[in-house]
């Protein structure tokens, strides 16, 4: 399992899966604490129309255009949600529901109407992801990691998600103080001069960038699991934000690695000869981790909740 076949077929998908999970879990921590978990849900749905429109305009699946398209769609969605909330005095959940389902429907319709058969862009991949296909065809074994020719043929999704994951870490470190302040005490943050509205908006755009980079690997719905499950489980482990983020990275990595291995090799142990969806299995593992945390994690109950309710 650790030989050249592993490097060729499994190394890059695992790396992409791990980096996707981490890139989504980092903004996910803040979304959960701000009770905006469903913004992650909305964003991951509107990524699809963003990507499709970017493709229709540029005619290529260039990463930059896709990222811009998805980020643009996220901005449009946020503006639309605000407009519906204010004009109709509609509660945020319903405003979100109107926006993301409609944009998603528009994306699917555009995708079905346009000819995207030449590129890896179809509805099934958009929904389920296609982690297994991101193989490193030119690899001959571990030594290929030092072979510039082979490295040049890495699937382009890997450097893309690596850059995005790094970007998420950098953004979080640079904006740590204002981000933390505006998450826990928006009023106080405002009085010490943190532009809280801008921080909230930037968080949404950052989440959109993470979602589009992870989109290739896991599709638009399982991304939600990566936004929510590892940070939610981490939230039940500790009361400190720093520790929570570390836990969420651990859980995200664990979900991706275990999920991929179970999907690829699990069926073989049961005597079946076909792998199952890796993206789906990653979501399932992250759910299992959250389930374990919900029944056994040290800080699973609310502060002050009666003991018997735990």
């Amino acid at each position: 399992m650790m030989g050249s076949a592993f490097v060729q077929l499994s190394l890059t998908p695992i790396l992409i899966g791990v980096l996707s999970a981490i890139a989504c879990a980092l903004p996910g921590n803040f979304l959960i604490l701000r009770r905006q978990a469903l913004i992650g849900d909305a964003i991951s749905h509107v990524v699809l129309p963003g990507i499709v429109v970017a493709f229709l305009i540029t005619g290529a699946t260039a990463s930059m255009a896709m990222l811009l398209g998805a980020a643009g769609a996220a901005v449009v969605a946020v503006l639309l949600i605000e407009a519906i909330k204010r004009l109709g005095r509609i509660e945020p959940g319903a405003a979100m529901g109107v926006t993301f389902t409609s944009m998603f429907a528009g994306g699917v319709l555009l995708l079905e109407q346009s000819d995207t058969s030449t590129v890896h862009l179809d509805v099934e991949h958009a929904l389920m992801g296609n982690l297994e296909s991101l193989i490193w065809f030119r690899a001959r074994g571990w030594e290929s990691l030092f072979d510039p020719v082979a490295l040049a043929h890495l699937p382009p999704e890997l450097p893309r998600i690596a850059v995005v994951a790094l970007l998420m870490v950098l953004l979080m470190v640079v904006f740590w103080r204002p981000l933390k302040l505006s998450t826990f005490d928006e009023g106080f943050a405002g009085t010490v001069g943190v532009p809280t509205g801008l921080m909230g908006f930037a968080l949404v755009v950052a989440a959109a960038v993470a979602a589009v980079a992870a989109f290739d690997a896991v599709g638009s719905i399982i991304v939600i699991a990566m936004f929510i499950c590892p940070p939610a489980a981490a939230r039940l482990m500790t009361n400190r934000l720093e520790i929570q983020i570390l836990w969420s990275v651990v859980f995200a990595t664990l979900s991706a690695v275990l999920g991929y291995v179970l999907a690829g090799y699990g069926p073989l142990w049961f005597g079946a000869d076909h792998a199952v969806s890796a993206a789906g299995m990653i979501a399932a593992v992250s759910g299992a981790i959250l389930a374990l945390a919900s029944v056994a994690a040290p800080h699973r109950t609310r502060l002050g909740a009666p003991k018997d309710a735990g």
């Binding site: 399982i222 199952v276 789906g280 990653i282 979501a283 399932a284 992250s286 759910g287 959250l290």
Partner: peptide, 9 residues
């Protein structure tokens, strides 16, 4: 998301 993931599997 988790139920959807299990469904896809």
């Amino acid at each position: 998301s988790v139920f959807f993931g299990i469904g896809i599997v």
